[in-house]
Computed example of a mutant assay.
Amino acid sequence: MTDLDEALALLHKDDRENPRSLRDVRTKVLEAASDNVIPLRRRRFMPVAVAAAAVAVVAAGVVVVQANDAAPQAPPLAGPTSSTTAPVGEERAVSRMSLVSAKDALTAAASRIKTADQPVPPGKYRLITETGTYARGVTFGSSVDNPQALKGGTWMLPQTTKTWIPSDVTGEWLNRRTVTGEPKWLGGNVSQQEAAFRPSDTDTGERRGVCGDFFPKSLPKKVCGDPGDWDSPAFYAKLPRDPQALYDWLRTFTGPKGSTPQAMFHTATEILRAGLMPADLRAEWYRAIAKIDGVVLSEGKATIDGRTGVGITLADTLQRTELVIDEEKGDFIGERTLVGPETDETWLPEGTVTMSVAITSTVVDSIG
């Protein structure tokens, strides 16, 4: 059994034995574990905090945007060492934002998309770097009947993930994960000792694999050239280039999860984060995202890793997710997630940043 197998097995075990709905991270878990998603992608081994017997794992997806690789809203996005609660003046009045303005912003960004992406010559590699902070924690008990009865604590883990992809994507890939600092205590209704956090084996290390298959023993098995795998050029080649058709595809693809706006928005963002979407498709992809119910334009500008753009937000009572788009180039800069008013982790104030991630992509001469 691989580290990933063990981590996912533990995650499923917790979910089966603990009636608590892991609402705060439901989308991340479903996207990673659903049979209807891409067969084992590199983001599948997102580190999971493994706790003692009767403790439920809470892997809240929080990442800080700094580099490109593999759900946001105030001005400057918090980095690994910044405050986890948005400073006064940073919070966006989502209720005052208009859907029309979000459509306008995404359409404008789409019109600025470069007509061609930086090519990867034979023998070279595309390096995708994702730098961010992620919320992790442990919980005790169940919040099904009484959210206040849930006990636990949450930490923020700074981490950088780099993935080298050869010009021939059927060749060997390299994925390197590095914890870049000490976990930072966000808060809890138990002591830090009771909710002690220990990074898992999948938080660090190097993994190599043909076609990005870093865990060859895991199921479902990853297949080179699979048109259903967004690590493969075949995936993007088969997608339509019409915004309405792309919107319909997202709705169908997320059907097993109810085709909710949250599921569609998260899936659209995850595919962008993979860093492999060609420019011509990315332009129409933005226009498709603008059609999702509830998508609004963040007030003011959003900054991640020193790069400023427009923030496109989708919020519900559980969390608020923001993706940031470069207005000048149409590049996807990154995303972040903030706590909503009805989170199960009641010890986290509304507006607490639980994920902030920056994405960059470059072409390099060699692997590693």
Rank of each mutant, 00 (worst) to 15 (best):
N36A: 07
V65S: 13
G205R: 00
G141W: 15
L314N: 08
I312T: 12
T139N: 13
A51I: 15
A109H: 11
D24G: 04
D229G: 05
R43F: 06
A74P: 02
L348V: 01
T131L: 08
K184L: 11
A74I: 06
W230M: 01
E322I: 11
A51K: 04
K217Y: 09
G294N: 11
D5N: 07
M46R: 00
L99A: 08
R16I: 15
A60D: 09
E342Y: 05
F214E: 10
P227Y: 08
H266W: 05
F235A: 02
D35C: 01
L157S: 06
S34A: 06
G340R: 13
L150V: 10
W285S: 07
R43L: 03
I292Y: 15
D326R: 03
D3W: 09
N68W: 10
S298M: 11
P220R: 05
V48Q: 08
Q192M: 14
L150R: 03
I289L: 14
P183N: 13
E345L: 11
T133D: 03
W285C: 12
L106F: 09
T115G: 09
D229W: 09
A263E: 06
D293G: 08
P243S: 13
T139R: 02
D203H: 03
D231I: 09
L348W: 12
D168P: 00
Y247P: 06
F140R: 09
A7P: 02
F332D: 01
G309A: 06
V57G: 05
G171C: 01
A67N: 03
S356N: 12
T267L: 02
R126Q: 13
T129E: 00
M264G: 03
G311R: 14
V63K: 05
A67D: 00
L10C: 08
F215D: 15
D168R: 04
G181K: 03
A53H: 14
A234F: 04
D229R: 11
A7F: 02
V296N: 07
D35E: 12
R26W: 08
G258K: 00
S143D: 04
V144T: 10
R136F: 14
I165A: 00
G258T: 11
R23C: 14
I367H: 04
R43W: 05
G188D: 15
L219K: 05
A196W: 01
A7H: 06
R176L: 14
P87Q: 12
V58M: 08
R307A: 06
W185Y: 06
R112G: 09
A53S: 15
K13A: 15
R20A: 12
P278R: 00
R23H: 13
A274I: 06
R282E: 11
W285P: 12
L246A: 12
A9Y: 04
A283P: 05
Q148I: 07
L318T: 15
R112E: 01
R43E: 03
